Amino acid sequence: MAELTGVVFDAVDAEALAGFWAAALGWRTDAGGSVVRPPDGGVELRFRADGRPKQGKNRLHLDLAGGPAEVARLLGLGAVRVDIGQGEVPWEVLADPEGNEFCVLPEHRGPADARLAQLCLDADDPATQGPFWAAATGWTVVERAAWGVCLRDPARTGPALVMGPPATAKTGRNRLRFLVAGDAPAFLADPEGNEYEVGPVLG
């Protein structure tokens, strides 16, 4: 059965970036420091060494639960504030030590002890992307609106998957991409060209 199991990060220094995200989320590191896992299972983060520096805004990013105290904590870990043209918004836009953007929401969403609130994928056509990713991940579309679509894992209380515009122009392989469970490793792309990986679940 299809299952969204992780987010893969290309990283110049995979171990250091994994350490930042482990501290940011309060998760543990496994597999020699290259995998960051939540304590009760669910979507994990995997970090792959890649010498290419980041260029342009990512099409996939994470949203963390937060508020001012959380922003201050993350800045202390090495995050920085960034301006990606967001204008006046109620959330804070930060970047990790390799420049990967993420948002800190002003209110908490999801379980009280969960810092990872949402996985956000740019989408020009959410009406097409929603059903595709529902089939690819086994998650369910739970909300449709002018801003896009929201999917949730029916078996867990982990992060939501949110997709909608505006979509950043694609100029090469996405630096962040989804990992979907499967027996035969594969490198595929969704209807809008976003790469994703298929691979076995690591123990």
Rank of each mutant, 00 (worst) to 15 (best):
R115V: 13
P111S: 09
A135F: 04
A134V: 04
R81Y: 10
P126V: 06
T128Q: 11
L77M: 07
L94C: 07
D124E: 15
D122R: 02
V142R: 12
P106Q: 08
C103R: 01
D96W: 09
L116Q: 05
L116H: 08
H108W: 12
T137Y: 01
R109S: 13
G85T: 02
E88F: 09
C120A: 10
A146P: 00
R109A: 14
Q129F: 04
P131V: 08
P106R: 08
R109K: 13
V93L: 12
G110V: 02
L119G: 00
L94N: 07
A123T: 08
A112L: 08
T140P: 00
R115E: 05
L94W: 03
E107H: 14
E92R: 07
N100K: 03
F132P: 00
E92G: 00
A112G: 06
E98R: 02
L116P: 00
A136V: 05
G138L: 10
T128Y: 02
G85V: 00
A95G: 07
G110K: 03
A114D: 08
D122Y: 09
L116G: 03
A117M: 03
R115L: 15
V141G: 03
E92N: 08
V93M: 15
G76S: 05
V104K: 04
P90Y: 10
G148P: 06
L105C: 12
L121M: 14
Q118H: 13
R115C: 08
L121K: 02
L75Q: 09
C120H: 12
A135H: 13
D113A: 13
P106C: 06
D124T: 11
L94Y: 04
Q86I: 04
G99A: 07
Q129P: 02
V82Q: 09
L75V: 04
L74P: 12
L119E: 03
A145R: 15
L119T: 06
D113G: 04
N100M: 05
H108E: 08
Q129T: 13
P97W: 05
G138F: 13
T128K: 01
D122Q: 07
L116K: 07
F102R: 04
R81I: 01
P111D: 09
D113E: 15
C120D: 14
W139T: 12
A117S: 15
G99T: 10
G130T: 00
D124P: 00
L105G: 11
T128G: 15
T128H: 12
G138H: 10
A145T: 11
D83Y: 10
L74D: 10
H108N: 11
P126R: 08
I84V: 13
P131D: 10
V104Y: 12
V104A: 05
T137H: 08
P90M: 08
R81D: 12
V89H: 11
V82H: 06
I84N: 12
L77Y: 11
D124Q: 14
G110M: 03
R81C: 02
D122I: 06
A135K: 13
P126G: 06
A136I: 05
N100I: 04
W147T: 14
P131C: 05
